[in-house]
């Protein structure tokens, strides 16, 4: 039987899915063991037990100076920045995507411009953002917006253009105006795509958020990681990295569920 036709059973599927995680953890534990056996005060690969202890301390003990649990505070601040940035980018992307996709004049004006703008590396603009918008919240949000909006606009305008011409013509023969076509034909069909595009751009969004927080901030997940780097506090860094990964994964999963619930007509195509 050909390999392409051999399928794992249910138990084997679960086992195979878990395998890479287990292997990575094993490799870490072995590596950590070897290093700690040689030098008990090694800081590069703390033992899993130590990471767990640190995580517990971070999650429950308040900061002695401010009295706040910094872990949750960092999370809230970072998530707020991410939400505002991604929200702004998504609304801009949706509006411009629809306009570029539907209106030939807007398309002629902006499609080339957006294609060029999307090639500007956002991180190279970061110094400009700090100079123009200061070191406060605004520059971090703006970095996320600048970073992912061009991608969203390009993707959504493409999706709008991909709506079959037949449907648009059909709507015209039913007497729909341009606005009605945008509202009742294009928008509902682009919304599920918006969620997909946002899912894809969440990776870059996190990247820009952490980069901005690492360089200039006094709160946030990225700031904390780069702060404790100075003390080689690998246990803290790893806790934060695992937490960020978990957050990103949960947001992605939530968006996937939302898309399936909110747009039942898309069926299995997403």
């Amino acid at each position: 039987m050909r390999l392409i036709n051999r399928r794992p059973g249910r138990v084997l599927t679960a086992f195979l899915a878990a395998l890479p995680f287990v292997l990575v953890m094993l490799a870490y534990m072995v590596g950590s063991d070897i290093r700690l056996a040689e030098n008990p005060s090694d800081k590069l690969m703390p033992a899993p037990a130590q990471i767990a202890a640190t995580a517990e301390r971070l999650l429950t003990e308040p900061d002695r100076r401010s009295g706040r649990i910094l872990f949750w505070y960092d999370t809230a601040v970072s998530l707020k920045r991410l939400a505002i940035g991604v929200g702004l980018a998504a609304s801009t992307g949706l509006i411009f995507g629809l306009l570029i996709g539907l209106l030939p004049h807007i398309r002629a004006t902006f499609s080339g411009f957006v294609a060029v703008i999307s090639m500007v590396p956002p991180l190279a603009l970061l110094p400009i953002l700090f100079i123009v918008f200061g070191l406060g919240e605004l520059s971090k949000v703006v970095l996320i917006v600048i970073g992912i909006t061009p991608f969203l606009i390009r993707d959504l305008s493409q999706r709008t253009l991909e709506i079959p011409r037949e449907q648009i013509v059909k709507a015209e023969t039913l007497g729909a105006s341009t606005f009605t076509i945008a509202l009742r034909v294009a928008l509902p069909q682009v919304l599920p795509r918006l969620i997909q595009s946002v899912r894809l751009s969440l990776g870059p969004a996190w990247l820009f958020l952490i980069a901005a927080e690492a360089i200039a901030s006094d709160l946030g997940l990225g700031y904390r990681i780069f702060l404790v780097r100075r003390y080689l506090a690998m246990d803290v860094i790893l806790t934060y990295v695992i937490w960020i990964t978990l957050l990103a994964f949960m947001i992605d999963w939530a968006l996937k569920v939302l898309a399936r619930r909110a747009f039942p007509w898309t069926g299995a195509s997403l």
Partner: peptide, 9 residues
Amino acid sequence: FQRYSVFPH
């Protein structure tokens, strides 16, 4: 049309 004549959403 032959296809795409109704609104899928």
